[in-house]
């Protein structure tokens, strides 16, 4: 107990005085708000979103209603930020799920980030954090087994879901040249799993039959949602500029994950799988468009050693443990303790 008490509370850096969370309904945004609510030193924090988080009553939350893609949103936001004297912006408003309405998704992720970045520069915040994903490296048989932060992102990504993330990252990394006094942290999370997480992977695994590609059994990497939040807290309360992969230790093959979760896999011949999954996606019967199937075919495992060296972040649960925990909670969700 004594050793844990020393390392528990990360001291608040001055840049974390006035935190503005952008995006309250994403899996990370929702959970970080709850963390901020618990933290005693944080007197109040601001949330920018289209709809206020209604899930429960938040005591310290100050809500700013704003549509990030509305014309002139950057100026309005800059005004608001100046009024608050915001010191830190946590940008979590990137979509967890690919959307059928990809035009809107593109507007939100790319133009929304652009507006947010210009507002942040105008309001002279001290810190800007973006939550991205390791999917930006792209899945390819040419990837090394462990992708480091210096590996170039996959420019030729064919999925809009990934393309928009890359664009958003670029907008944020531009700050480095244009306003070097701002601490820019870019976190790339691998697949986040857990009972509260909702993304395309967890949605896929909440079905009893999971489509796979015949003959391909890639190594998958997971991080538990609580570990993800721990990493986020580290960079939120302290100052750590740079790009970091936030991943769990180790890997598990997709087929092992399927077996452990007690799912049926439906192996599809790749040439057949892409069009059939695409048509199912158009009918919204699967959570993954065909263009994301490469992520269930080739390797895209990222290396988390930079995060452990610089941030001192070690995931408490390995990829395997995180996945097993998710699988267990997923099973209990299916058991009907109806209310």
């Amino acid at each position: 107990m004594t050793e844990t008490t020393n390392s528990t509370l990360i001291p608040l850096s001055p840049s974390a005085e006035k935190i503005v969370v952008v995006g309250a309904h994403t899996q990370l945004g929702e959970q970080i708000i709850q963390e901020l609510e618990k933290r005693p030193e944080v007197k109040e924090y601001w949330v920018v979103d289209l709809h206020s988080p209604k899930k429960r009553a938040y005591q310290k939350l100050r809500f700013i209603q704003l549509d990030l893609i509305a014309p002139g949103a950057d100026a309005t936001l800059a005004e608001e930020l100046k009024k608050i004297g915001a010191s830190c912006i946590l940008h979590t408003a990137l979509k967890n799920n690919p959307s059928l309405n990809w035009v809107y998704a593109h507007e939100l992720e790319v133009i929304g980030t652009l507006n947010l970045v210009s507002a942040a520069k105008a309001a002279q915040v001290k810190k800007f954090i973006l939550c991205s994903t390791t999917a930006v490296y792209g899945a390819s048989p040419k990837n090394p087994n462990y992708l480091t932060e210096s590996h170039p992102v996959c420019e030729k990504a064919c999925s809009y879901f990934v393309k928009d993330k890359i664009e958003a990252e670029k907008q944020v990394l531009k700050i480095l040249n244009e306003a070097p006094q701002i601490t820019v942290t870019l976190l790339r999370f691998c697949l986040i799993v857990g009972p509260r997480s909702h993304n395309y992977f967890t949605e896929l695994f909440r079905r009893s039959v999971v489509p796979t590609l015949l003959g391909y059994d890639p190594l998958m990497q997971f991080i538990h949602e609580r570990d993800a939040i721990r990493a986020l807290k580290l960079v939120l309360y302290g100052d750590h500029p740079g790009v970091f992969n936030i991943v769990g230790r180790g890997v598990i093959p997709l087929s092992y994950a399927l077996r452990k979760a007690g799912k049926w896999s439906l192996p599809l011949w790749p040439a057949l799988a892409y069009p059939s999954i695409q048509s199912l996606w158009n009918l919204q019967m699967v959570s993954v468009p065909a263009r994301l199937l490469d992520f269930f075919r080739y390797s895209w495992v990222a290396d988390g050693s930079k995060a452990s060296e610089v941030l001192g972040f070690e995931a408490k649960r390995s990829s395997k443990d995180a996945f097993l925990e998710f699988a267990k909670s997923e099973r209990i969700e299916r058991m009907s303790l109806s209310a």
Binding site: N145, L219, G250, V251, I252, P253, S255, Y256, R259, K320
Partner: peptide, 11 residues
Amino acid sequence: RAGDVDDWGLD
């Protein structure tokens, strides 16, 4: 069926 693998995918 796949089992537990090490960091490099060796089962």
